[in-house]
């Protein structure tokens, strides 16, 4: 360290046609930090989920599919792929955000963002979009590969994109909520293993709920993920198992409610600020 070395004042910014405002720079940096975190460990954050998704497609689609052939007139491998794409987005969005927030809380590195001029809304959106984008990347790659290999169609792009974006944002919010509430890494893995994965697996990724005997068919209707899978499956395949309009409306409301809860937590500093 050289105490005598000059620290120069800021040079005047050159005039430019397009330049970001300080608020835009702040938000893009907060988001860049979240994206760079998962890109630095992409074997774990992108490679592993992709491998997992393709293993599901191979085992359930190719191996089991040769026995089941079709479900409600749709090739089994095609039937399960929309749910797998949803599952990839949901789990990646959730685990990214929950672990990123908890890790930064654990190291208290999050204080750097919390003591900046960033607003609670900017902080929440940046943390949310980190996981959202990770889920988007994994899902997009899965979709492109599924489209090339098994000809996965897109029957209703509007419903599909709306549903997937809502699902991605919903699980991003859920990840943020768990990350903020968590005090140890066990809290995050508990939520993922004992709540999230059972809900997704029992929501009908690998089967149609209409095939289940009672009371399991009725019980499935209380699982919110069932409606999410129904929407995404409708968007890809045109297979209508749920009321599309009602499911979209409920999913939108649930996502908005979760976002409102998280915004409240960021505003009050719950388990973030002393």
């Amino acid at each position: 360290m050289s105490a005598g070395q000059a620290l120069r004042p800021a040079a005047p910014a050159p005039a430019r046609r397009f330049s970001l405002t300080p608020a835009q720079i702040r938000f893009s940096t907060l988001l860049r930090r979240e994206v760079s975190r998962f890109l630095k460990i992409k074997r774990q954050t992108l490679g592993a989920p992709l491998l997992e998704t393709f293993l599901y497609i191979s085992v359930f689609g190719a191996a089991l599919g040769s026995r089941i052939q079709q479900l409600d007139g749709i090739d089994y491998v095609l039937f399960i792929t929309p749910g797998l794409i949803l599952m990839a987005w949901a789990i990646n969005a959730f685990s990214n955000n929950s672990s990123s927030i908890l890790q930064q809380k654990f190291q208290r590195a999050i204080d750097d963002q919390l003591s900046s001029p960033a607003s609670p809304l900017e902080l929440l959106l940046a943390f949310s979009l980190g996981g959202f984008l990770r889920g988007l990347i994994v899902s997009l790659i899965t979709f492109v590969v599924a489209w090339l290999l098994i000809g996965l169609p897109v029957v209703n792009a509007v419903v599909l994109l709306t549903a997937l974006f809502l699902v991605g944002f919903f699980f991003s919010q859920l990840g943020v909520l768990i990350g903020v509430r968590a005090e140890q890494f066990d809290d995050v893995s508990f939520a993922q293993t004992f709540v999230l994965q059972p809900l997704i697996f029992l929501g009908g990724v690998f089967y149609s709920a209409s095939l289940l005997p009672e009371p399991f068919q009725t019980i499935t209707h209380f699982n919110p993920v069932y409606y999410m899978i129904g929407l995404v499956r409708y968007g890809f395949l045109g297979y209508e198992e749920v009321d599309v309009g009602l499911s979209l409306a409920v999913l939108s409301l649930a996502t908005a409610a979760l976002f409102a809860v998280n915004l409240r937590l960021f505003k009050t500093g719950y388990r973030l600020r002393a």
Binding site: L20, S28, S36, Q107, A109
Partner: peptide, 22 residues
């Protein structure tokens, strides 16, 4: 309270970004 994932350059660069520096 440093972020273990970041390099030294990134630590300073991100901090500057949080404060709106170009």
């Amino acid at each position: 309270n440093l972020d273990w994932f970041l390099t030294l350059e990134e630590t300073l660069d991100f901090h500057g970004g949080y404060f709106g520096m170009r």
